[in-house]
């Protein structure tokens, strides 16, 4: 089941890479300069790092049948806090700790609305999505705050052979994968996603788990916000992380995690985030106007979602059954806790 789920996004990624190699033959070439790797593929990884990081947090939220629309606004707030603090002569490390601390508070707020008050996640996080950007504007007083701090610019633009940003994202992804798949945590998250009430009756602390995933998502968004602002050495409350929540949700969905909750695939999210970023880069290299990227994004999303839809699989199976009646095995429509 899982292998089949990840097949289509992988195929999409491979297709995009092949297309790139045809258009620009030097696409896969890597060169080492000053001990750093350079090349188009590295660029994709570097630019995709914030989306990937947010998508990891989003995966866990979606696994509990939730959604977090506020991540973009949270990212903007994190950048705004860090940059205003540094611009006022503060230390970069303190700035980052403060920014992430505020993000944890914002995550606590989202989690409180969803898990304690029982407000639907989409609307609970819409509050912060709308108000959050206003708050970020308030912090920067509507200005784009530029800073110059060598330590701070390392997060987004630094290199340790590979870009630091992607190393952070991959480390978080790996950490989450280990933590949730090697312990029972992943299964508990999935069980909450299938049925929070039943999980609670079975002794799972649904409320705590839901609360935790929102805090984690906000923390991921905060780190991503630091990456974005450090990459350009500035905080832009208006456009930093704009629509990144949509990209992250798309990455998660393309990766085969159902919005209905109850199961998730971190490997799928990784592939999904790469597909989104490669698509964006591909459209740039082919020379289509930047804004038209959206059309391609829409087409890929719809195609992948339709191919993964259980109903489509049903249609195909119906066809096959008519041809060779013995092969097909009926599968359950919805996969619960594995």
């Amino acid at each position: 089941m899982k292998r089949a789920q990840i097949l289509w996004p992988l195929a999409a990624l491979a297709g995009l890479l092949v297309l790139n190699i045809i258009v620009t033959p030097s696409f896969l070439s890597l060169r080492i300069q000053d001990g750093h790797l350079f090349g188009s593929t590295i660029d994709i990884l570097r630019n995709g790092a914030p989306t990937m990081l947010i998508a990891v947090g989003m995966t866990l939220v979606i696994a509990t049948r939730g959604i977090d629309l506020s991540v973009g606004a949270v990212a903007a707030i994190a950048g705004a806090i860090a940059c205003t603090w540094i611009a006022d002569g503060g230390n970069a490390v303190t700035a980052m700790i403060m920014a992430l601390g505020v993000c944890v508070l914002l995550g606590l707020w989202n989690g409180f609305l969803v898990s304690v008050l029982g407000i639907q996640p989409i609307i609970a996080t819409l509050v912060l999505m709308t108000a959050g950007r206003g708050v970020a504007m308030l912090l920067t007083e509507g200005q784009i705050i530029t800073i110059n701090d060598s330590l701070y610019s390392k997060i987004g633009a630094g290199f340790v052979v590979l870009p630091v940003a992607i190393l952070i994202s991959l480390a978080v992804l790996g950490g989450v994968a280990l933590l949730t798949r090697r312990t029972a945590l992943g299964m508990l998250i999935e069980s909450v996603g299938v049925n929070p009430e039943a999980s609670r009756l079975a002794g799972v602390r649904s409320r705590t788990i839901i609360w935790t995933v929102y805090v984690f998502a906000a923390l991921c968004a905060g780190v991503a916000g630091l990456m974005i602002s450090s990459n350009v050495n500035a905080a832009d409350a208006n456009s930093a992380g704009l629509w990144i929540e949509m990209d992250a949700i798309l990455a998660v969905v393309i990766g085969g995690t159902s919005l209905a909750g109850g199961r998730y695939s971190l490997a799928g999210t990784l592939v999904g985030a790469l597909v989104i970023q490669t698509l964006t880069t591909t459209v740039y290299t082919i020379g289509v106007p930047t804004n038209v990227t959206l059309v391609f994004k829409a087409v890929v999303v719809i195609a992948v979602c339709l191919l993964q839809s259980p109903r489509t699989a049903g249609f195909v199976r119906e066809r096959r059954r008519r041809k060779q009646p013995s092969v097909s095995v009926p599968r359950p429509q919805k996969v619960g806790v594995r």
Binding site: I67, I122, M246, I249, L250, V253, L259, L294, V295, K297, A298, V299, V301, I302, C305
Partner: peptide, 10 residues
């Protein structure tokens, strides 16, 4: 959510 998001991009 996903379909209309794709519709928005389109």
């Amino acid at each position: 959510f996903i379909v209309t998001l794709a519709g928005m991009f389109l």
